[in-house]
Amino acid sequence: MLSILKEAAVGSFLSVKQIAFIVIPLMVFMEILKDAGILDKVANLFSPVVKIYGMKKESGFPLVIGIIIGLSYGAGVIFRSARDDKLPKKDLYLITYFLVCAHAVFEDTAIFMAIGASGILLLVTRLIAAAFFTYLASRLIKSETLIKSDTGGNMLD
């Protein structure tokens, strides 16, 4: 019994330490990118790319922020851009579809790398698959037809 406890204590401590060594520098780096305005520049740079989805240029910003930072922070940015930039519902849906498939990609990838998985394979597969699926969705969602009238709408208030 004692040896089991020791095995678990040592093993879990080493795992957390391994992850901390990667996650803490990554979060500092991301904060620097944010404060130096680089994140916003990158997001604006990629904004025109969303035109292939038939989205407004402004929709690229919340999408890129969500991909890099994460879903919960991304959702805040989505709500704000939806209000400020009057994003169409189709854009909101496509942004959300992309983000549920791939969000906080650097943080997740770093953690999986820390425990021994292939980081580059994860990152590339996630982004390509999410981009491809969102493209399909952009062809399928023609108008507002897919939308249940009672679910959307009031989030913009």
Binding site: V16, I19, A20, V23, I24, P25, L26, M27, V28, F29, M30, E31, I32, K34, D35, A36, E107
Partner: peptide, 17 residues
């Protein structure tokens, strides 16, 4: 960019950990 940046980054990293 300031020391706050570093502090916030460290805090975020420690929080995730």
């Amino acid at each position: 960019l300031s020391q706050d940046t570093l502090k916030r980054g460290l805090a975020a990293g420690v929080d995730v950990t």
